[in-house]
């Protein structure tokens, strides 16, 4: 079954076309990596799928339902959640509150101003459980903005998966991390995205080839290759694109 499908998606900023007709199918339960040189449009593509920017033309569907005209919060409620390349958390709320906020909608609280949070046992237990899962229990009551970088990245992943979305988009989750931090983060991501569809932008090739079932290569707003890791690794077009980008 297709979890996310893109058909001839285009996006222009002013006269410049950044995404130039992308076709992509992401199967349910797949771990899909999106790679490509800087400026290829990977993050832009994420922004289009998650509804942060409107598309110029084309179609995007989530579980066979069109989402390309919907605002981000509606797309999120349909089961797609994303993280950001630049850490995006609620920096003046505690770590626990960050996770609880990420849980609220999926637990059906909506805009409730009548249910006191301290009495929501199931919700609070879930948030505590997530804290433990992310290994952040000792940081529970600290303001999220005061966490170390790696901890903030872990929190961001936690907030992304908290709502129980079936499709997870991670934008460079290991960017700026040391080797040991990357290993730890990848183990975490592997664990918390079990059974979900994962689409990930990543620069670290070791991580990509370790984790991904399918790799899509994006160059100048177009997909030049998509398939299993061995196939992509062997592809001449990919080698050329990457080498070309490096030579420039």
């Amino acid at each position: 079954m297709t979890a996310v499908s893109l058909r001839d998606v285009r996006k222009s900023f002013g006269p410049t076309e950044i995404i130039r007709g992308v076709n992509l199918e992401i199967q349910s339960g797949e771990r899909h990596a999106l790679i490509g040189p800087n400026g290829a449009g990977k993050t832009t593509l994420f922004n289009l799928i998650s509804g942060r920017f409107p598309i110029t033309s084309g179609e995007i569907a989530l579980n066979d339902r069109r989402i390309d005209a919907l605002p981000p919060h509606k797309i999120n409620r349909m089961g797609l959640s994303r993280s950001f390349q630049i850490t995006s958390i609620f920096h003046r709320l505690s770590v626990f509150e960050n996770l609880r906020c990420a849980l609220l909608w999926s637990q059906g609280y909506s805009y409730s101003f009548w249910s006191p949070l301290w009495r929501q046992k199931a919700l609070n237990e879930r948030a505590e459980f997530l804290l433990e899962d992310l290994n952040l229990t000792s940081r529970r009551d600290i303001l999220a903005g005061l966490l170390s970088y790696a901890e903030q990245r872990a929190l961001e992943v936690g907030m992304t998966i908290a709502g129980g979305a079936s499709v997870i988009l991670l934008d460079e989750p290991t960017a700026g991390m040391s080797h040991s931090e990357t290993d730890y983060a990848m183990a975490l991501i592997r664990r918390v995205t079990q059974g979900k569809t994962l689409l990930m932008v990543e620069h670290d090739m070791k991580v990509v080839f370790d984790l991904a079932d399918t790799i899509t290569v994006l160059v100048y707003g177009q997909v030049i290759a998509s398939g299993p890791p061995e196939e992509v690794r062997a592809s001449k077009a990919v080698r050329e694109a990457y080498l070309g980008a490096l030579e420039e």
Partner: peptide, 21 residues
Amino acid sequence: TPLGRMANACRDNFERAQFVG
């Protein structure tokens, strides 16, 4: 309440609030 907490969340980062629904 959830509303009060999400008001804080939107204050800190309205974009992230959209991506938690």
